[in-house]
Amino acid sequence: MKQKDETLLEIHDLSVSFRMYDHGLSQTDLEVISNLHLSVHPGEILAVAGSSGSGKSLLASAILGILPPNATVRGHLHYKGQELNAQRQKQLRGTEIALVPQSVSFLDPLMKAGKQAEGHHRPRTPAPIKSLFRRLELPEETERLYPFQLSGGMARRVLVSTALLTDARLVIADEPTPGMSLEQAMEALGMFREMAREGKAVILITHDIDLAFEFADRVAVFYAGTTVETAPASDFRSGPDRLRHPYSKALWNALPQNGFQPIEGFQPYAGDLPKGCLFAPRCPYRTEKCIISIPPVREVRGGEVRCYYGS
């Protein structure tokens, strides 16, 4: 393990819950992220993969402090060794920590793409934005177009450019590649790699896990609001035998190039989580123990796994 002072962002025992109306005026808390641990070091790309609706985007919002008012965050967030509280989040987001949002509806519909890419911090010269757009294969006129005139992949690339134009130390890219062709996605990810080489850190939230395996240094696998496995990306490239958690293996096997075989069942609903291991209901190797209590995080072969049997 690296020293604490080398860690850019440390997340310890994070949980996020939403206060929702149940019946009439009674309210309930719905815990959507629980006991989450994650650390990010300067110079690395950490890919966050995993189930849709497992709280990956919420994690991004929690780090930036942009969750809606009915959300409660517990646990510890440390940025550069100091506690990341609401005031600091406000200070840092957009300058030190940048977000590439998931939905193209984050673009202001009434603002031209070029202006949005520049953001609040107008670049020194107009040169970087032009060359950046060219590298992302965006036609020159894109700068002058409104979001509704862009195709899905073009809008996505404009979103990516917003983060690349800042001097952020930490970039959180939430699904930056959908809608891009393979070549464009590789180019965009290559640019994140360049940022990492400059000592910045990138959290890459993605479903294009085959690309993530290629470009990331480490991969964290999410399931039902927590991390089930964190491992070097090389393990994911080697195949299921090198992976520690049955869910990670199932992800690998469901890739179209690896069999396209889905496992049965669905991720449990946040309001109705199993008592023990969150993956137990779908796990082919579950035992009595898994159903009764939540397995702790263990270190196995240079990775972390939340499973009694991961080896």
């Binding site: 995993g50 479903h207 179209p256």
Partner: peptide, 8 residues
């Protein structure tokens, strides 16, 4: 925008 298991 789906994970690969849901995609499959």
């Amino acid at each position: 925008m789906l994970d690969v298991i849901t995609q499959a």
